[in-house]
Simulated assay, not measured.
Amino acid sequence: MSVTFSLNGKPVTFDGPDDVPLLWAVREHFGLTGSKFGCGIGMCGACTMHLDGEAVRTCVMAVGHVRGRAVTTIEGLPTDETNPVHQAWNELDVPQCGYCQSGMIMATTSLLARNPNPTDQDIDQAITNLCRCATYIRIRAAIHAAARRA
């Protein structure tokens, strides 16, 4: 069965089983590999994308769930000066290995859209993505810097 949805602002159709994880449909069928596979159980957040503007874990979300909805991947975000999150990440040299960073950026972008001036507690509650390199101090500083820029 085919699933039609918006991917980074463009209509797309996935021809395959409805229960394929969205992450795999986006990576393998549409070739957008910025979102990563980490744990496969929705815990680590490396697979985070936006669904209708909200951060979601896509390794456990069936592609059939996004029928008629808007999916945004890391590739769908602007990378220029209009994106304060990318600017803050680069300025503060946040990534170490970088594997989790697309998910962190997607979660942060969603947080700042809902809460433009988050406290440390807000960040801790909203950004539950895991970073194997433990760059959490830089991540939090970058979130605050992005909030100031926005």
Rank of each mutant, 00 (worst) to 15 (best):
G53T: 09
T82Y: 04
V20A: 00
G16V: 08
V56E: 02
C59I: 09
V20C: 01
P17L: 03
N90T: 12
V94G: 03
T13S: 15
A70E: 14
L92Q: 11
T119V: 03
T82K: 14
A134D: 02
M43H: 12
P116Q: 04
S110I: 10
I137V: 15
D124K: 04
Q96M: 06
G40W: 08
L22R: 15
C133K: 07
A70P: 01
Y99R: 04
V94C: 08
N129F: 08
T73N: 09
V20N: 01
G45T: 02
T108I: 12
H65G: 02
Q121Y: 00
S110G: 13
F30W: 12
R69L: 10
M104W: 11
N90K: 12
L111Y: 03
T109L: 02
A62Y: 11
C100S: 00
R69Q: 10
I105L: 15
C59D: 02
A134T: 13
P95G: 11
T58I: 01
A46D: 13
D52W: 07
A46R: 10
E75L: 09
T119E: 00
D52A: 05
G16E: 11
G16D: 10
G103W: 03
F14N: 07
V26K: 04
L22P: 06
T58L: 04
H86A: 09
E28W: 08
G31K: 15
V60M: 14
R27A: 11
L92T: 12
A107G: 14
L51P: 00
M104Q: 15
I41S: 14
H86I: 09
M49Y: 06
M106V: 14
M61L: 15
W24E: 14
T13G: 12
R27Q: 11
L111W: 01
R27W: 07
T58D: 00
H50G: 10
G68V: 08
F37L: 15
A62N: 11
D18F: 05
R69P: 03
F14V: 06
R114V: 08
L22Q: 14
T79F: 13
Q121C: 01
Q96E: 10
T119K: 02
F14E: 05
C131V: 02
P95D: 09
G76A: 01
E81G: 13
C100Y: 06
T48S: 10
C47E: 08
T72F: 04
M43Q: 15
T48K: 01
G103N: 07
V60G: 07
P17G: 08
G53R: 09
I41C: 11
M106N: 14
Y136W: 10
D93G: 06
A70W: 00
V94M: 01
V85Q: 03
I127H: 01
Q101K: 00
M49I: 05
F30C: 11
A88N: 08
W89P: 03
R27P: 11
T72G: 03
M104S: 07
M106Y: 13
V71M: 13
D52M: 09
T33Y: 11
A55G: 04
K36P: 15
D122Q: 00
P116F: 00
A62S: 09
T108F: 07
I127D: 03
C100F: 03
F37I: 14
G64C: 13
C97G: 06
M104I: 15
